[in-house]
Simulated scan of single mutants.
Amino acid sequence: MNQTIETLLHHRSIRKFKDQQLTTEQIHTIIRAAQQASTSSHVMAYTIIGVTDPSLKSELAKVSGQPYVKENGHLFVFCADLKRNQQLGSAEEQVVIQENMESTEQFIVTVIDAALAAQNAATAAEALGLGICFLGSLRNDIQRVSSLLNLPDRVVPLFGLAAGYPDQQPEIKPRLPLEAVYHENTYPSPERQQQLIQEFDKELLNYYQNRSSNARKATWSSQMIDKYKKPTRLDVGPFVKEKHLNKQ
């Protein structure tokens, strides 16, 4: 099998890392790979912040609630960023530019650009023999993270990416069957979706009950129901608008 495909298919989140920092060469290789991701209209509407200050890592770990935000080989924070582009043009042009930047469309562009870059970074890290874990938990207090990182207007912290040398080898978590996420020409019937979900629930329950650590009794359905029954991070929407993004 192609080595790149094999790397992608063997992805698993690593939540325990060895006490070994990434080299500057490794970090720059990961960033260069991230920069080669596709970007809408060559906008490149993201910024990546590498966090090396131990005290800053500790503060971010408090926001996240996860120890591996602090204990890793390197911590990257991916941000949606239209501040860089806002500064272009004459004073008159900037008035129009800034107004257009506040649209939902342009916010979607920044988020997609950052996500594509982050996935390239993750694949590059794993190709180097490292492990990674995405950290949406940094949005538990998005205002605090923004303050800690001194993020200006039109820059929003989206998620972190912890990378390092794995100190665990977790099993690969099952994914929904291909038939549940890929459809030709039309969306499937609810009955077909329910059938596929029920089959996946059985597979995931077996995985959770038999994995080498943190065994539990849960299905995909039960986790999704619990997730969406409880509102979370409702401050993110107002925060984004305060940053003059996604306002129209």
Rank of each mutant, 00 (worst) to 15 (best):
Glu191His: 10
Val69Asn: 04
Thr47His: 00
Val51Glu: 03
Gly73Cys: 00
Met224Leu: 11
Pro190Gln: 05
Phe239Gly: 09
Phe76Asp: 03
Glu71Tyr: 10
Leu205Asp: 10
Asp19Trp: 03
Ser90Arg: 04
Asp235Lys: 00
Gln87Thr: 00
Arg154Gly: 01
His42Met: 15
Lys18Ala: 15
His10Phe: 12
Asp81Asn: 15
Leu158Val: 03
Met224Pro: 03
Ser146Ile: 01
Ala180Glu: 09
Glu59Val: 02
Lys202Glu: 15
Ala127His: 03
Val63His: 02
Leu135Val: 13
Ser41Asp: 09
Leu116His: 12
Val63Asp: 08
Lys230Met: 03
Asn100Asp: 13
Thr24Asn: 13
Leu8His: 07
Leu204Ile: 09
His11Ala: 03
Gln98Thr: 14
Pro166Phe: 00
Thr110Leu: 08
Gln193Asp: 06
Asp226Met: 13
Leu204Ala: 04
Asn214Lys: 10
Pro231Phe: 06
Met101Arg: 01
Leu130Ile: 01
Arg84Val: 11
Ala125Cys: 01
Lys247Ala: 11
Cys79Val: 04
Pro170Gln: 01
Tyr228Gly: 07
Tyr165Gly: 05
Asp53Met: 03
His244Asp: 12
Ala37Tyr: 05
Leu178Asn: 11
Pro166Val: 08
Thr24Lys: 11
Ser64Asn: 01
Pro152Asp: 08
Leu56Ala: 12
Met224Phe: 10
Gly131Cys: 09
Lys57Leu: 06
Gln195Cys: 12
Pro238Ile: 01
Val63Pro: 03
Ser147Arg: 13
Gly237Asp: 03
Phe200Ile: 05
Leu130Lys: 04
Thr52Asn: 14
His28Asn: 15
Gln195Gly: 14
Phe76Asn: 02
Ile31Asp: 12
Arg144Lys: 15
Leu8Ala: 12
Ala117Asn: 04
Lys247Gly: 04
Leu75Val: 03
Ala45Met: 00
Gly131Asp: 06
Ser212Glu: 14
Gly89Met: 09
Lys202Thr: 15
Gln21Lys: 11
Glu242Met: 12
Ala34Tyr: 01
Leu196Cys: 07
Gln87Cys: 06
Phe76Met: 10
Val63Thr: 06
Leu60Ala: 07
Ser221Tyr: 00
Lys16Val: 03
Gln248Ser: 14
Tyr182Lys: 13
Leu204Tyr: 06
Thr39Asp: 08
Leu138Phe: 08
Val156Lys: 04
Thr232Val: 11
Gln193Met: 15
Pro67Ser: 10
Arg233Trp: 04
His42Phe: 15
Leu138Ser: 07
Gln169Cys: 05
Phe76Gly: 02
Gln21Asn: 01
Ser146Val: 09
Leu151Ile: 08
Pro166Ala: 06
Ala114Tyr: 06
Val145Phe: 09
Ile14Asn: 08
Asn206Ala: 05
Ile5Ser: 10
Asn185Arg: 04
Thr24Glu: 14
Val181Trp: 04
Ala121Pro: 06
Leu75Gly: 01
Val155Phe: 04
Lys202Arg: 15
Phe134Arg: 13
Ala91Val: 12
Gln143Ala: 15
Ala218Lys: 01
Gln86Gly: 08
Ala91Cys: 00
Glu179Pro: 11
Val51Ser: 05
Ile132Cys: 01
Asn210Ala: 09
Met224His: 12
